[in-house]
Design a binder for these strands. Sequence first.
DNA 1: CATTATTGGTTTAATCATGCAACCATTCTT
DNA 2: AAGAATGGTTGCATGATTAAACCAATAATG
Lengths: 150, 150
Amino acid sequence: MVARKSLKGDYCPSARSLDVIGDWWSLLIVRDAFDGLRRFSEFQKSLGIAKNILTDRLRTLVASGILELVPMSDSSTRMEYRLTAMGKDLFPVMVALRQFGERHLFAPAEEHSLLVDRASGQPVQLDIRARDGRSIGPDETVIVKVPDGK
Amino acid sequence: MVARKSLKGDYCPSARSLDVIGDWWSLLIVRDAFDGLRRFSEFQKSLGIAKNILTDRLRTLVASGILELVPMSDSSTRMEYRLTAMGKDLFPVMVALRQFGERHLFAPAEEHSLLVDRASGQPVQLDIRARDGRSIGPDETVIVKVPDGK
DNA sequence: CATTATTGGTTTAATCATGCAACCATTCTT
DNA sequence: AAGAATGGTTGCATGATTAAACCAATAATG
């Protein structure tokens, strides 16, 4: 692959995000973490990922502040990987990916999982809106540069 | 690398999405497409990606239905890559990634770009809500299986 | 009209990342 | 105490990515 380019210095927030979770496994691990998985072996079994790669990805995610390695609650010496507050902020990303998949990547009557509101059982909605509440699409937006805050 | 595992058959919509746009370059190309880039050389210049990889990714994105290759508007024989309707449906993913980056990957006063409503100039909002309008987080949701629609 | 630059690639070689299998020390279960 | 599970590490073969050179067709320039 020859030194994968780092986007850390990019001024675009999307690029920086991709720098952290844009590789092939990281978001799948995060998805599983949202599903409640905590242990090395759980991720390994769920994803079928090679163990050395899982080791590497978990370390990277911990180093990025998305996961944290904490002692297991049940009085053991074992550790488990948990989403940090920052990690939980990836929730909209997961929901957006999920909705895209639901809309375009399944046959009309094909079985799939669905994310619902725990209280009502109704599917969750994701909208992008202007301050005044209008929902807006890509053509109603522009990217502006925010200068350095002094 | 040994044949990267395909997630096409996974029942999880997020996984299928990642199968299509989860590689390292695809979402960056899509981001640039949202920014208005159309031509091979524009993407190449913007991303600094190796040309053979760009060729491959553009082909994959076209094959996936996210981009389409259309004759340029200005009466030329040249072609340009444009987001399809399906590709534009990745907008929430881009916005979610952007917001995550803005929130966690920049120093407080660091310069960055910002996505704003064209009409008002105000930053766009992204919320995840239940049917009744309450905005909800990861802990208020569950994943259920939707059986095959017969 | 001849020259040069740009576009949109292909090919090649070197290098890096990934997957697989084997191995290992520690902890848990029986 | 024996065996299994956990959470890794190491080595190798192979695939993926890159940089660089090259190229044909078109567009721009003088």
